[in-house]
Each structure stands twice: as structure tokens, then as C-alpha cells.
Amino acid sequence: MSVLVYIENREGKLNKGAFELVSYASRIAKDLNTGVTALSIGNVSESELSRAGQYGASKVISINDGRLETLDNKAYTIAIEQVATAESATVLVMGSGFTGKAIAPRLSVRLKAGLVPFAIAAPSSYQPFVVRKKTFSGKSFSDVEVKSAVKIITLSPNSFGLHESPVSTAVTTFSPNLLDSDFSTRVDSSEKFSGKVLLTEADIVVSAGRGMKGPENWGPVEELAELLGAATACSRPVADEGWRPHAEHVGQTGKVIAPNLYFAFGISGAIQHVAGISSSKVIVAVNKDPEAPIFATADYGIVGDVQKILPELIQSIKASRSH
């Protein structure tokens, strides 16, 4: 018996999201009186991988197989299944980002393991095994009982946090047994989004809506984001009208995010928009309409014109830093 946690790297580095998953897996392992094994796929140095020990992983398994450089749903599923079986994992923890969404359901079938996606907390009980998840786009929560022997959980980002529990870590390598026929997708080309901070990983997000009036007014939004080391985001009509790239659209039909701080400039706060941001720790809204629904979700608000408030906010942050 063990808890297996699949961690992703970006260009060879583990990030906060990976450590949050290890923290979460460690909590479950502690409750079950067992150990945590972290699994990494990709070219990551041993010293970087051993950082997982800071959050409780006593063992890290590294798969470094060039064929797995890009995500192939079938091949990844088989590779992770082989590790889960070798480790006798009874609980498998993954992120709920692009890879988790693609792989966890396939693993669920292969391992005949009940899956709880978008979990927001550690299991509330183990017998029966019950985990709370978001439902109805964050408008409610459901407690899901998993009845199968093996369980899979994907964790909503920023919902458990980082918890250190240092242990000494052994890094080992694993070569999955994969046939060429297990690979079924061919990558023709790739494209990177511009913007230094990834929306799904950002601690601070500066978002704006139709109240900005047009794409030519986005300068201060980007300037504020730059100043705060934040990612930029937008409402759906802004992306649909081509004012901003689709990758920035947050909400029910866009990305669901949970930063520590979310700014909504000129966003009305429609229920479908709020669905994507309601898990943010602090929400700040600036809107000229005091009745805008966004104020019902926001923690701090200013009733005013974004064209006036945004530059003042930038000035004020700069001033607060200079002394």
C-alpha cells in the first residue's frame, strides 16, 4: 500500500503546484499510515526531484523516456499504470490541469479506480472513503464516496496549500514498458503563448471585461500585471470579440482559476464569469455601476471609471514601494 502522486515539471523545474500535490498526498499517507511516492515524467535533475522530500515524499520515481516528451494520452496512462501497480498504490493523486484531465479518467478505467476530480480538501473520512469536490461550477460542493479498492483524486489548484514535512528522499529511475503502438498522437508543431506568467499558475491575476471599451485600452491592465508579477485574464465576450487571446478567458466555459488575488476591471460579474474565479482568496472589483453583481462576490470594491482608477492604482502601488 502507498500513496502515489504524479507531479509535473516545467522546463525541468518543479513548481508550487507540484509541491501542493505532494503536500496533499502526504496528508493522505499520514492518515493511512503509509508512505508517499512521487512520480515525475521528463528530464528533471535528481536534486530538483529530491525537493519533493521537503513536502513528505520519501521516494521519487523518475521516468525519462524521450518518447514521453509530449503528452500522449494512451502512452502516459500505460506508464503511470505500471508505476501504480509496481508501488501497490491504493491512492493516486494528480493535478486537475491539462495533463490530469487527460490522463486521470483513462487511468480510472485501467485501474478500475473510482475518480474524484477537482477535489478541494483531504478526505473527510477513509472508511468510507469520502472526498469533497466542487460541483455546479463552484455553486455547490459534493461529498463523493469512492467504493473501489484503488482511488484516484485530482486536486483543484490552490485548494490545499503547501505544507512542509521534510523526509529524506531516494530518487530512482523507472523505464516503462511501452510499445511503439502505444503512441497514437503525432505533434506537428507547437506554439507558446506570450506572457511570462501562466494564468493557471499565477498568484495574482489582473482581469478586465467589456467595460474597458476596446483592445486599445489594455495598456494599463498589462502594466499593472507586470508591476505585480501577475497574469492577465479577461471575460468571455472580450475573448470572443478578439480583443484578447482565447487563452485568457476565465469562467465557466474558459479557465477556472484560484489565485490569491483577482482584479476585475469593468467586468459585470455574470454567474458564468464568477464560476471561474470564485475560489480566488481575495477579489477586487472596479466598476462604474454600484449595482454590478461583481460586488456581491468581491472582497474590496471601488465604484468608478476604470480609465481613471487603473492609472491611479498603478501610481499608488509604485509610490507605496518607493518608501
Binding site: 475518480l115 472582497d299 470594491g301
Partner: peptide
């Protein structure tokens, strides 16, 4: 393999702290 055994609603947010423009 799974069953929903209970549901909950999010706790109501406290009122928005309004700051003068």
C-alpha cells in the same frame, strides 16, 4: 465506482469593503 453522499453550499461571503474612488 463512486456515489455522491452529501452536498453543501459555499458559505456566504461577507459584504464587499467599498473604497472611495
Amino acid at each position: 465506482l463512486t456515489a455522491v453522499v452529501g452536498n453543501a453550499l459555499p458559505t456566504a461571503k461577507s459584504a464587499c469593503h467599498m473604497v472611495d474612488a
